[in-house]
Computed example of a mutant assay.
Amino acid sequence: MTLDDIISMGQTPVVAEKKNPLGEPGETVKHNVKRLRESVGLSYAELARKLDSLGRPIPVLGLSRIEKGERRVDADDLVALAIALDASPIALLMPETVEESEPASLMGKPITAREMWNWLRGDQLPDALEGNALAFVVRSRPRWTINLEMPAPTIEVDGRELK
Rank of each mutant, 00 (worst) to 15 (best):
M1Q: 13
D5F: 11
I7M: 05
P13L: 06
V14T: 13
K18H: 08
K18Q: 12
K19D: 15
N20R: 14
L22K: 10
G23P: 15
K30P: 10
K30G: 04
R35T: 09
R37C: 03
E38W: 01
E38M: 08
V40Y: 13
L42P: 07
E46L: 05
P57L: 06
P57R: 07
L61I: 15
L63N: 15
S64K: 15
R65Q: 15
G69F: 02
R72V: 13
R72W: 15
D76W: 05
D76G: 10
D77M: 05
D77I: 11
L78H: 10
L81Y: 12
A87R: 05
S88H: 05
S88I: 01
A91W: 00
P95D: 01
P95C: 00
T97R: 01
E102N: 00
E102G: 04
P103C: 00
P103R: 01
P103W: 00
L106N: 02
I111L: 01
I111D: 02
T112A: 02
N118Y: 09
W119S: 04
P126C: 03
D127Q: 15
D127P: 15
A128N: 04
E130V: 11
A133R: 15
A133M: 07
F136W: 01
V137T: 03
R141H: 06
M150N: 04
P151D: 11
P151E: 09
A152T: 13
T154Y: 04
E156R: 10
V157P: 00
D158G: 07
G159N: 10
L162Y: 14
K163W: 14
